[in-house]
Design a protein around this nucleic acid. Structure first.
Lengths: 261, 261
DNA sequence: GAAATAGTGTCTTTTAGACAATATGGT
DNA sequence: ACCATATTGTCTAAAAGACACTATTTC
């Protein structure tokens, strides 16, 4: 039988090998379940704030904690397809541009889910347009939280009735979110795809406001220098040359920027 | 029975819930096998060239093609632990510093392996010290290839007897390698961990030589300006202030740099 | 017309990068 | 002595950032 294996692996054609392979009764190794988790960002035009979508868990495990949008990957589906599907299910929005969703990485600590071996492929989604999440069942209803930082500079997520700290998150979602924020921060000068939450065109001030959530170097920028330095040098940002009067009321008309396709 | 589920999910303690969960006979979904693939970089002091470790496949599938170092993730093991284990098996080197190995991401196209559903968590390893790969079996013997680019700027991997092009790679390893190079390139100004292939301390000229493989902006640097601009601004690079005479023979002594811990 | 907002202009300081000069060791 | 190699120094042009000024809109 060793001869048979060697024959198919080395002498037969690849098609013959594959036909033979699939007939064999291989010892099955333990396998993990594969899930996706999705850090979905949005920009709320009603208060000009960057938001993140979380659900409060009503059941064990991690009852009462907050979690990212997630779900299992189905066979014949890539992780990104699963994340796109879950995003559509939760928000109704179909993500069209490739760079509106990044894969952040695989989170594979064997004990990350207390129930069983489940790995998660984390994604970040820069949602547009901004929509209210679709109503889910009792155990699962998503809400938008404002991205903010406490006095120690730690991330927290605000809601009219309170706030969610990183330690209020289920599973390893603190880890996923921190990794996501670091990844976005580190690529801000190369690919600030987070700005997709603003849509195709947007105001310079809103762009600066979004970026401030990821790197404090933007806190120091005056709006004028922001456009002169960051926008001018950024490979995917563009000044359209157009203006729109401030929809919020007073003020000089704002510059309209866009992302290069 | 629905009442029982609801009871344990919402009213029982988390420990009670988990004990109950593990007794249940859940419908088992299809699960993928989880593998790791590892883009292992090294720096050969005998020719001062950046190298990558590849194996030539002697069996189907992808017989005759070249592949990355890979293997399956075992239960109770994270993907990174599996990648560290495979690296040790293949080279004998135990990677000690956390940032000498990056996770690049999960490659999850369902048909990426023609045999069965196997996802791969790709890693990049910046190996040091440089060692010859350990002898494997017939089907698996790894060799170092010099990282180079052809006249079109496309990556290729050289060996005294020939070269390997990206299209000579098995599975989706072309994809993995391209993603790895892009990731290294994009983070060169923030975390040039690729320089770990040079060890704890190294010459400025070797650093520049390694970086040239990832971004052509380094081709234009004179060695003088390289230290004055790149090294000075880089958050993890340091000028030790020491010098060593050129071990290759002629020339003014070289500056010794190091990576900040 | 005062307050709010944000774009524009100007000036100063810093930085990048080109290039020349210098230091070191080999042949 | 001369060549190869790499650092150091210098100069110039460009860029960053501070800050004052101006334009637009609301109240």
């Amino acid at each position: 039988m060793e001869n048979e294996k060697e024959y198919y692996e080395t002498k037969a054609s690849e098609d013959e090998y594959l036909a033979w392979y699939k007939k064999q009764d291989w010892k099955t190794y333990d396998k993990p379940a594969m899930a996706v988790d999705n850090v979905i960002f949005g920009f709320d035009p009603s208060d000009n704030q960057l938001k993140i979508l979380l659900i409060e868990r009503k059941t064990h495990p991690f009852k009462g904690k907050f979690a990212l949008i997630g779900g299992f990957v189905e066979p014949n589906e890539s992780a990104k397809e699963a994340a796109l599907r879950e995003t559509k299910e939760e928000t109704g929005v179909e993500i069209v541009e490739d760079n509106q969703m990044w894969q952040i990485g695989a989170f594979t600590q064997p004990d990350r889910d207390p129930r069983q071996w489940i790995i998660s492929i984390a994604h970040a989604t820069f949602l547009y347009p901004f929509v209210l999440p679709l109503a889910g069942d009792d155990a699962r209803s998503a809400r938008w939280f404002t991205v903010a930082r406490n006095s120690n500079g730690e991330l927290e997520f605000l809601h009219p009735e309170g706030y969610v700290a990183l330690d209020d998150l289920a599973f390893d979602h603190k880890d996923i979110i921190l990794t996501t924020f670091k990844r976005i921060k580190d690529s801000l000068d190369v690919t600030p795809d987070i700005l997709h939450v603003l849509g195709d065109t947007f105001f310079s001030t809103d762009a600066l406001g979004v970026l401030k959530n990821f790197d404090k170097k933007f806190v120091n920028y005056s709006t004028g220098n922001f456009v002169k330095t960051y926008v001018k040098n950024n490979p995917i940002l563009m000044d359209t040359g157009k203006f729109e009067k401030n929809p919020k009321g007073a003020g000089r008309p704002k510059k309209i920027l866009s992302l290069r396709k």
